[in-house]
Amino acid sequence: MEPLERYRPIVDDFEAFLAACERPLGNAVRVNAIKATVDRATAALEAEGVGYERADWNPRVLRLETDSPGSTWSSFHGFTHGQEEVSAVPATVLEPEPGERVWDSCAAPGGKATQLAALMDDRGTVVANDSNLGRISALRFNAERLGATSLAVTNDDARNYSLERFDFEEFDRSLVDAPCSCEGTIRKNPDALDGWSEGYLDEVSGIQKGILGRAVQATREGGTVVYSTCTFAPEENEAVVQHVLEAEDCRVVDFDLDLEHSPGLTEWDGDEYDSSLERAARIYPHQNDTGGFFVAKLEVTA
């Protein structure tokens, strides 16, 4: 927990934050609308005696009362997909519409890409990319189990991603759920902080800036880009968005989120960020009893 001490000045009720980070996280699933309505999925769970509780902020997110959410008929049929509650946030903030062309730049293992497809009624094109070939098989497995027919899967470096292979030139929306230091997953992975170093923050933030910059370029004027991480480090969050605000044509916009959260930061460690970064959301584990998350919504302006 030591690396988290640096967030004492920015987190309200820091002791509650630390206590939440020490507690293991329950099992959440997302209802996969491609294969089942919420009613059908919950009826299936009830039929096999699995208890659940609905998340207030999203009717498709359920907290299951079982230790093996992957060994249910509901999961076998692809009615539900194990997905941490906060990890269901960025796709809902991106708000894709049926028929659109959407890019998920860092898509493996596919929870968010299939959620995008479901939000689009599985109509349109979700280009699910990941640079790691080993993780592509997990992405493909999940896409097929969840019945997503609108996914096109690619294996490239998102920072210099080319749309040449497609018959369209830009995306309507893009999601950058970036590789990160994963501090916010500490409740799921108790060793998440083991390799923590400021040097790693420098390294990974360079990659994050590259991917987010490319996503803004690859998205049409008036289109939307969502940037998210599962970490608290401002170097990987507000500083990355700030960099792209300066380098590309985009602005930070407001969004509704029915989960308790804190605004994005406008200063950290002697650096100042644009006041619009307050429109981003920081979700801390003690606020909703979830993992930690950061989300910013951008509009492409040229």
Binding site: R140, A152, R165
Partner: peptide, 30 residues
Amino acid sequence: DHTFWEKGAGKIWVYGGSAPSPVEIEALGM
């Protein structure tokens, strides 16, 4: 609303999105 594609020998994929043919890609639909 779907197109059908072949990759590999005889493996057919069903896809709902947009793509030119032929295309080199990891997966198209399922």
